[in-house]
Write a protein that binds this DNA or RNA. Structure first.
Lengths: 336, 336
DNA sequence: CTGAAAGCGCTTACAG
DNA sequence: CTGAAAGCGCTTACAG
């Protein structure tokens, strides 16, 4: 039914090798031959069979993006960035979501492998440093995003968590805030985003000569909007008093903002609020949210570049670690 | 390097056909043989080569999802729903984004074809009824989402746009609102979401014995948050007076909400506001947004089911059209 | 500059 | 219940 290389070769009166040469833009094809082949391709509406190409070449021109879930706007925006960066290299992106447990995360990795992708970008969530050996079994080029598993044999692109949290906290302190709540800690965590951001928060307090009040470090397990709302409600119900909030991501910040506003707390007059991620929507909340732009687009672009280099390159370079630049975006929630 | 069927066959002392039988769960394999083969598979860490399978069987077990862009939360949530539904059938999802022009949309369709996917879900945006012939050239099972191109030869899953917009408008009218602004029209459009929703708006006014005031029908080209904010700002600057707003999607509604609140307009006391889509975040705005739940998860599930049926089924059924049920979700933005 | 041929790793009639 | 063999549609040395 669909035309093959042989059909085109027959129609053009050449061998399949010549047709293949034309399709793959080999330089040494006589113009007349090329034209004849191209005419035959047009007429027969020939399209190369991807599966056959892949079987021969071992390349699928597809990479996987393994992320928690796209309902989380951060990952949706990241996916958009990754798809655009991949397209610039001629790659398509297969997204695999996983749930909040190790098994689901490992299943997503296995799925990427089963599909025979050329490589994967993997946004680590549950897996920790002890799981590094499992990553080596994936058996394809892989670039890690996010935190954890620092000492694996893989490239790693991430943001300056600690420095950025330090900057966000210092911004509140510089405006005279003295009781700054940290929203989103994961007690006991060291290498994850929560641990690193907490360290930045603590560092900024120390630099200002302030003690960390443990009551102001509020743990929140998952970082969705509902979790930020719930945690803030509990904090207010418990009578906690504070004049600033550093939320460890924007979803937490927006959930907390909603609860504070409905309790009549004025932002930023009574409580100044900073988030993390610079989601599109943070420009449209009221007040608009001051936040950290973590350099997500740059992270996506660099990660795709590294992965493509691993896929196409012959040189086996050392694993690299890239830290994107961040930026404090000042908006209404900390104004004045 | 990687083990093949032949390696496993040799190790187990059987033919490759028998190994294939074991892998594909053919019933008639002796237990002892099966165990021997499975042991060899484990030992050699054999994984079937997807490309070879696809070349033989013609199946990739991948479907495409062609959508405008994932930065739009509606499509991010849709993508999540589609991926979960596809996984239940053993399919992975390749997402192709397109920009706001016909060429980009056609390129995405061609890309899906080039990849040799088993089928595509296509959320139509720019293409219209005249383009139906182009869709037939895609040459693979396809299910349409969204509006436009009603009379193509393809299955189509969508929501009850007109009825839902009617219900949203009637909800405001029942609360005594008399000057209801429609936000997001596309002048001249008939078969698209904007045209259908406008018809519902007009119908509800007519049922209440009210005239449509053309000044209250506000066109907005793209339906992102920034567009809703801009349009609302312009409407207020022009001195337009109204006591209700039906926004044609939630992003428009949230953008408009932000502008009204910063102008000191009280919602819902002075202006009641309804959106469309039931995005996750509409529960966390202040006020929480009354909206239409368009049955997005159901749409995703039904669309995937239909597509899988087209892919695996032999019976060539007539194109079907499925309309999901909608629901008005009442929240604070229209309370009291 | 072009051709004949091998082979990528499977699945699937066809035998027995 | 299992085997021998063809063939899916390409790419790629190898010749000439």
């Amino acid at each position: 039914m669909t035309a093959t290389l042989h059909d085109v070769a027959r129609a053009a009166g050449v061998s399949i090798k010549t047709v293949s040469n034309v399709i793959n833009n080999y330089p040494h094809v006589r113009d007349a031959t090329r034209e004849r082949v191209e005419a035959a391709i047009d007429e027969l509406q020939y399209r190369p069979n991807q599966a056959a190409r892949t079987l021969r070449s071992g390349r699928t021109d597809m990479i996987g993006l393994i992320v928690p879930d796209l309902r989380n706007p951060y990952f949706a925006e990241l996916a958009d960035d990754v798809m655009r960066a991949a397209r610039a290299h001629g790659f398509s992106v297969l997204i695999e979501q996983f749930d909040a447990d190790r098994d689901s995360e490992l299943a997503a990795l296995r799925g990427a492998r089963r599909r025979g992708l050329d490589g994967v970008l993997y946004s680590v969530l549950s897996l920790g440093e002890d799981d590094a050996p499992l990553l080596d079994e994936v058996g394809m080029p892989m670039v890690l995003l996010g935190e954890r598993i620092f000492h694996s044999a893989h490239d790693h692109v991430t943001m300056r968590n600690t420095e950025a949290a330090h900057a966000a906290t210092a911004h509140l302190l510089a405006a005279g805030r003295r009781r700054v709540l940290a929203l989103g800690s994961h007690p006991g965590e060291v290498v994850g985003s929560a641990g690193l951001r907490l360290r930045g928060y603590e560092g900024a307090l120390a630099d200002a000569g302030l003690e960390v009040d443990p009551a102001l470090v509020v743990p929140v397990d998952r970082w969705h909007r509902v979790d930020g709302a719930d945690a803030m409600r509990a904090a207010l119900d418990a009578g906690l008093s504070f004049d600033g909030v550093v939320a460890f991501n924007d979803s937490l910040a927006l959930g907390a903002m909603r609860v504070m506003l409905e309790r009549g707390i004025r932002i930023p007059e009574e409580v100044a609020l900073v988030g993390f991620d610079d989601l599109d929507e943070t420009r449209y909340s009221l007040p608009a949210l001051t936040t950290i732009d973590p350099g997500r687009s740059e992270i996506a672009r660099v990660a795709v570049d590294l992965l493509v280099e691993r896929i196409t390159g012959d040189a086996v370079a050392e694993p690299r670690e890239v830290l994107a630049d961040f930026r404090l975006v000042e908006r209404e929630s900390t104004a004045g």
